[in-house]
Design a protein around this nucleic acid. Structure first.
Lengths: 194, 194
DNA sequence: CTATGATTAGACTAAATGGTCTAATGGCAG
DNA sequence: CTGCCATTAGACCATTTAGTCTAATCATAG
């Protein structure tokens, strides 16, 4: 395993730690120890803990999100197919199903309490909402869905419901249960197909 | 305002602080300062921070949950009516809509990381699931719903979706948006009515 | 009133936290 | 090879953390 540049390694370990333990419960020293990187080195690259985590969010967490929240259609795909696929892919993602969505978890911990995190994380949530709204709207425009479907509010529903399902405690979650529940969302949407 | 017994006052303040800031980010000293209670006094009543919060969960958080998750029907009520009512009542609960469900928030923070909290909080989640399953099942038995409805798994869906909707960041939540989204859950269930 | 146990009071402690600082090292342009 | 800047290294620091301890006070049973 080739030696990663300090900064990259720090971001990786920070993601792992913050994902499981949360922002507050993750100490700088723990990250440093796990990464095998001395303090000065970290404080050379980042102003402090908060800046490290903010960078991690943008360069790791957001990137990881793109691998399972995929709301862009292939040319020949229906919206229903896209969403079914998205859920199928998510259900195969062990850490996602076990520990929940990293974006949502961090929002729950920090949004009410820190403006910068709220802006960054909430901004991304809004962006996902826009993407999903656009997907649903395109389905309406194509005639896949009735125009009784309110794309914007159903998109909001899909997102928060999915986050809720994903972020149940490990002891109550499994790939099977995730799929079982996600099917209700799809079923609900299907009622709007022509 | 008559002076509350120390123990009760501590539980109240602890609920407020942990609800907003989470377990880890809440310090014993902060609670003590806000409550105007000296340390020795607290350590006389509780072995430590964890025990204080565990007691708070059982004596405050669980009790508060009972005021908005009400899955017991009145004699003349349909299941749909009961749920509609539950959502209507929740939407009027400002802190609930703004900061989310205190049980769910604490589960998200601690379940993956602390066995005792996982057992306590997860246990309550299971109980809620059972109550809701029983409610839906009674609706099937009464002929309100088709027997195509899988009470247990739909109950799970209702719970996690509701938690997801409730626990969106304050900047993305409002009473209006909560109701808008909860309506999709009800709509989905309604499809199973005769 | 008084003796006794429960409670209050808060100074104190050890460990952990995030953060600073200076000296050593490494890589590379000239 | 040399000089220079970026990086590494980790000892050190102030603050906060949860938790302890002993003395004072309070409530009340006798």
């Amino acid at each position: 395993m080739k030696k990663q540049p300090t900064r990259e390694k720090l971001l990786d370990i920070t993601f792992d730690e913050v994902y499981i333990h949360g922002y507050t419960a993750t100490s700088v020293d723990t990250i440093l120890k796990k990464a095998g990187i001395p303090k000065g080195s970290m404080y050379h690259h980042f102003k402090g803990k908060k800046e490290l985590v903010l960078a991690m969010v943008q360069e790791r967490l957001f990137v990881k999100m793109d691998t399972f929240f995929i709301f862009k259609r292939e040319a020949d795909e229906t919206v229903m197919q896209r969403l079914r696929d998205t859920y199928a892919a998510m259900s195969k993602n062990k850490p996602l199903v076990t520990y929940g969505c990293p974006l949502y978890r961090l929002m729950v911990e920090l949004s009410a309490v820190d403006r910068e995190f709220d802006t960054l994380l909430g901004g991304r949530a809004k962006q996902l909402h826009q993407e999903l709204t656009a997907l649903l709207q395109s389905g309406i425009d194509d005639g896949e869905f009735t125009n009784k479907l309110d794309a914007e509010s159903f998109a909001r529903f899909i997102l928060s419901a999915t986050w809720g399902i994903l972020s149940m405690p490990p002891s109550l979650s499994s790939s099977r249960l995730f799929l079982e529940q996600s099917r209700f969302i799809l079923e609900n949407l299907e009622a709007y197909t022509h």
